[in-house]
Amino acid sequence: MNSSFVQSNKILICSILVILIIGSFTLLAYNNQNTALQNSVKQGMESTVSVMATQISPKDLAGIKPGDEGSEHYKAIVQKLRTMRSMDDALLNAYILKVNPDQTVTFLVDDLYLQDPQGSAKIGEVSTAPKMDILLALSGPTTSKQPYTTKYGSFMTAYAPIDDNVLDSTGNTYAVLAIDVPATDYNDYTSRGGWILLTGLVSMILAIGAIFLFGRSTTKKDE
């Protein structure tokens, strides 16, 4: 009876150790996988928005003022953004933001204007997206640190500066181009490590099963 009790305790301790070790490694692998996926998605978005930003000329944006939504000039810029954005079905929206001298961030162009004039952002409308990400985009391509929500929905956004590209330019930034991916899509892209959890769980069950089998056989021999 005492021997059986000791054997059970040993099996219990071994099983707990196996659970802790395999569980830790599984969690580590899962987190690494998610980090890699998130970085990959963010890098892809940054590359896309960077290429798109090179196709926008600040000269086309210079004269835009609130109320110009219906003008042919504005529509031409919107159409250009739409054409580029339509290259990738994952992109939900492309728009241009202006960081004003008082550091407020306002919309300049929204490529949803043609298909939804009422629901699109107006010229001069203040953006409520995380401001620090947009400020950082004045210096180079960047993405939101994580999905965020505004009155237009939940998004993951990539930003890139639109260079003034004037001759002998010192590389000043005129505006910021942004592209949105729905937050749900981003979550789907970056949460595909389920097989790691499954592998960890199966490993645990197999290891514990083996411990029990060997333990039972040794107990029988003892008896």
């Binding site: 071994c14 196996v18 070790i21 580590l28 990959s40 411990i211 060997f214």
Partner: peptide, 28 residues
Amino acid sequence: PKSAPSILTMIAGCTAILAIGIATRRFR
């Protein structure tokens, strides 16, 4: 990204086998 989980899974498997071996020796 794929290599990291693979290595970790291998380590986990090896640890499990090691644990089984230790348990077997203990109960022998």
